[in-house]
């Protein structure tokens, strides 16, 4: 991992119309937030965030509650705008494509930027199998019964759930334990082959053992996906992420990005006093 160019906070904005040169395959899929401000009506939940997230890494968003971490990741897959009165200024680019560009459909964005929520939300009245298969089936990304079965197994294996559920795929998804449900939701999200997986405090509703399993899973998943994880738990951020972005409350109760960098630097030698106070537990 090249830490020097991995993540640059407050990167100078680049005109969106400039087409970037074709990236090398291993650099493909850089996620970039540019001067992003997310609004709820006239209230800016988080202001002017610029951040570059390299592909196939785990980036943790930490900070006190109410600083807009969750709002920011919901702008990345355009879920933010599904709430009444919610909108953004600035932009989000994935692999140089403006996700808010007029040519880009938000529904398509969500197929490429998957999401795992705070509380496990398996689809009710659907079997474990159908939960995972629902994405490929509806999106028609995979056709044919055998191919779908294969995709379900692959996704469940990648989500480290296969061995536990392979004999009860017809059982309802809601019959699983909390931690299993969350891994089921991860399997469901990756079954549609996203590039980026957003995780909004995925372990906050889980017990320590289930949390550990998810954390192990995240380390495994970063080989394939770009992962952005919001967490309240600083130990978790230090365990799973290679880079960390620290958010805090700014003026008018709007969240802002204080600093971002390699996780070990953020936790051992942060540049900002505010960050040091937070990671050392002096506030928040």
């Amino acid at each position: 991992m090249t830490t020097d160019n991995a993540l640059v906070a407050d990167a100078s904005p680049v005109a969106k119309t400039v087409a970037k040169p074709a990236a090398k395959p291993d650099g493909e899929g850089v996620l970039e937030l540019r001067n992003l401000t997310a609004w709820y009506g006239s209230f800016a939940a988080v202001r002017d965030v610029s951040l570059r997230i390299p592909p196939r890494t785990v980036t943790a968003f930490i900070g006190p509650s109410g600083c807009g971490k969750s709002t920011i990741i919901r702008t990345i897959n355009r879920m933010h705008e599904t709430l009444p009165g919610a909108r953004i200024d600035g932009g989000v680019e994935l692999d140089g494509v403006d996700l808010y560009g007029s040519q880009v459909d938000p529904v398509q964005v969500r197929r490429i930027v998957g999401m795992v929520f705070q509380k496990p939300n398996p689809f009710p009245a659907m079997s474990i199998f159908d939960n995972v298969a629902s994405g490929p089936r509806v999106l028609k990304t995979i056709k044919g019964k055998a191919e779908i079965e294969e995709a379900v197994e692959r996704s469940l294996r990648r989500a480290a759930l296969w061995d536990e559920v392979k004999d009860k795929l017809k059982k309802p998804g809601t019959s699983l334990s909390g931690g299993q449900q969350q891994r089921l939701c991860i399997a469901r999200a990756i079954a549609v082959e996203p590039e980026v997986v957003l995780m909004d405090e995925p372990c906050s509703a889980l017990d320590p053992i289930a949390t550990l399993r998810i954390e192990e899973l995240i380390s495994e998943l970063q080989k394939t996906y770009t992962i952005v994880i919001v967490t309240h738990n600083m130990q978790q951020a230090s365990r799973v992420s290679s880079t960390t972005a620290f958010f805090s409350l700014g003026e008018e109760r709007a969240g802002r990005l204080i600093e971002a960098g390699p996780t070990n630097e953020i936790f051992t030698s942060p540049r900002e006093q505010l960050t040091e106070d937070y990671v050392s537990g002096r506030f928040g």
């Binding site: 994935l94 494509v97 040519q103 880009v104 398509q108 197929r111």
Partner: peptide
């Protein structure tokens, strides 16, 4: 990836 993003729904 860009190809996928630009796919119309």
């Amino acid at each position: 990836l860009r190809d996928r993003l630009a796919q119309p729904v």
